[in-house]
Amino acid sequence: MKNLNILFAGFGGQGVLFAGKVVAYAALIANKQLSWLPSYGPEMRGGTANCSVCVSDEAIGSPLVTNPNVLIAMNLPSFDKFINAVEPGGVVIVDSSLIDKKVERDDVTVYYVPSSSLAEENGLSGLSNMILVGKLFQEVCTQGDCAFCDSDILDQAVQKCIPARKAQMLDFNRKAIQIGAQQ
């Protein structure tokens, strides 16, 4: 596989770190090298939250993704901050219900997914992040140069990430992923 350097960027409370964790577990199950690095700050909720995830066949160098080849932009400040840092040829997945701008670059592939609206409409409040994860796996993680797993592994990863006391959330997460994959 080609090295995958993903940056998830949004607000605290949007499930930025959780989304990254799903990718990290999928990479673990697929027996890849990986790193998962959160931004951390004094704010417990509501501040800027980023998560760098690297997946590779080789040992991971810097775990801090400054030039992602996949950017998941979950709010406008993050979109503005990172859109020009994406490597040429990279992928950008945008929550278009929160970000009304279009990407002006023509050297990246962009997917506009109105994930926050879709989550609300489908009774999946708070699972906008997993709709984006669905799209990420559909377009990047399971096909193309950076593919490293299949949808079975994604499902195992989601199961790993949901603690037993929240088991009732599993099907909602699966549904969100499915909706994302269909966008």
Binding site: L28, L34, S35, W36, L37
Partner: peptide
């Protein structure tokens, strides 16, 4: 350091 402390790896 904070990076190594906060990051997850297998």
């Amino acid at each position: 350091d904070g990076m190594l402390g906060q990051m997850m790896e297998p």
